[in-house]
Nucleic acid binder design. Structure first.
Lengths: 196, 196, 196, 196
DNA sequence: TATGAATGAGGATTCATTCAT
DNA sequence: AATGAATGAATCCTCATTCAT
């Protein structure tokens, strides 16, 4: 008698274990055996709920993408001014529940895979474009088109760079990251951070 | 009679092949067999000139670090004003001979390894701190201490983020990257990019 | 549902195959692939049930030691006089089920490893001391202490030497070996073998 | 201009290095590279003076056999009575210059190879038979044929067993070994060791 | 649904041997 | 005569995947 929702439960358990393993052991050491042991399950289970390891890894990236997207879009829905939309994006990216050591590690790992795994590349590209488009849309209401384009690219890169830095040195908290990103936009708008 | 300089030649060949393989195949597919085939040599040779694969990979990172450091320090030596020093750092990071698809891929790959390989972590940390210190030093002559600190972190993160973006989408050339980074500093100094 | 007792079965299969391979091919040719093929299993299985080849080899020595020890101690338990104890030791060492070509080959091989493999050295030392102590204990009841000591060393060496000889020429059967060893003790006691 | 006798010098250097390496590292770790480094020569040299590694190893065994044979035959030449011949054999086997840790290790190693390397097996068989024949010849002058046969086998085995013991525990010196072996023969002749 | 025993392809590494110098 | 750079076959080991239970 299959329990209702067992599939969702197991898939989530395995995805959680994958993120934890990537964070603690690195992708190279993240074997199917280790993932399942960490999830308190047997090795065989992975192939019950996923087509294989690659599939589990892709599902893990999808989860990370979804989480961050939700974090941003929830905030965007409440924003009424262009600058509020920028803040929503920045806050969504560095919210405490997203900007965790585990998530940051996993992201970095996926970034390194992206150029070599078409399935991941597609997911990443779509997400990246949506994010850039959100930023660009807001900035165009505050800056001339060309400047808006440049600052959009800059803010996107800065956000990624702040994640990267966090992954490698862990001396950067969400609050500081938010402050740096916000200052970047404000200066680009010709105001000082203090005016913000 | 052993040929003089053979060791340096072979080590460089193998490091070049490693960078190329990481770029094209990804680290996971970068096997000793593939590296040596790409270098036009046999598999055994890797263990003749390096302690093993790990050693070769570490040597490859050292090479990348050295190249970037040289690119920056050559330019820094010619800079006479604080802003010229900032430009030297930015230009050094995005100079055409450094900012290649191959180098960018390799960097991204190493970044993902850093948290899990102590030997790499040490190299990365030292390098990262030197770079941040260079930036901070120049900015402190143009901005109040606290602002200088924030903008230093921001510029470091932005530079890394621009590399990252380049690794994943390749739609970003060195010229654009330089422009974005430079604008960030200029705006932070309270001037428009046009004034720069 | 894992089969109960599978582990013991597989470990024994692999140990048997290791002994057979050492006997027929020699240790140098005894590869993991050959062992598993001989056991009718795959190469991977060795690392499922043993930590690695070295572990399997150590387990094989332990098995040889245990077999010989059981062979001797079963007989010792039934012996009531000192000379009967000596006979039990000699018979236990040259019993047909122990003194096989396979076992003898394997022993010789391990002896050669002992000086260079600490794990084996420890096992060997413990066993050797127990055996010598058994012999000494019995002889001390029949000979003055100093003589008992010398004859103990002599009998131990003679037993090993007979095994060695058997390993290299195979022209020595258990019956002859027993007779030679027994004669040595009897003469040392001042009786002729015929009196024994 | 090839130096006179260079070949003999080099061959001996390499054989010495092989014995030393077998003693200290074991046969498994005795590589061509290690042997030549120990001899202060290059890897290539082995194939100048020997057909290959196997040939060097066989030459090493021949050297050990020759040494022991000379040690025994020199003493035999001086012996005038049957018992003196037995003493010559025992003393020749346990003379301080033969009964060294290095030689003992090497012997043990070769014994383990003998059953699997035809070239070594032949050398060993010839030597073993000569030694047994020497012993038998002397004993037949002191004992009835059948007894002489048994004691010959016993003494041969005892000598080998004493070497073996020495290889594994090193707590046995030449003097003790000689005493034990001599006592064995004397008891077998019906005299006490004290009478010997 | 879940297990973990079993497989075997593929990886890093070692090493005897060859050969240009 | 001597070197040691270079080769590539062979070894141990790992791990995704399959499958009987």
């Amino acid at each position: 008698m299959p329990k209702i929702g067992m599939e969702a439960i197991r898939r989530n358990q395995l995805i959680d274990a994958t993120i934890a393993s990537i964070h603690e052991d690195g992708l190279a050491e993240t074997t199917v055996a280790r993932i399942s042991r960490r999830a308190g399950l047997s090795t065989g289970i992975v192939h019950h709920y996923f087509r294989g390891k690659e599939d589990l890894v892709a599902a893990t990236l999808r989860r990370l993408l979804t989480d961050i997207r939700n974090s941003v879009s929830t905030r965007l829905a409440l924003a009424t001014t262009p600058m509020a939309r920028i803040d929503a994006i920045i806050d969504g990216n560095f919210a405490d529940e997203q900007f965790t050591a585990q998530a940051v590690s996993a992201w970095l790992t996926f970034w390194a895979q992206v150029p070599h795994v078409p399935a991941l590349a597609r997911l990443q590209r779509v997400n990246s474009e949506r994010s850039l488009s959100n930023i660009r849309h807001a900035l165009k209401q505050m800056l001339p088109a060309e400047r808006a384009e440049t600052v959009s690219l800059g803010l996107s890169a800065l956000i990624d760079g702040l994640w990267l830095r966090c992954a490698m040195s862990a001396d950067l908290d969400g609050e500081t990251a938010r402050r740096i990103a916000r200052a970047y936009v404000l200066e680009s708008l010709g105001r000082t951070a203090a005016e913000g």
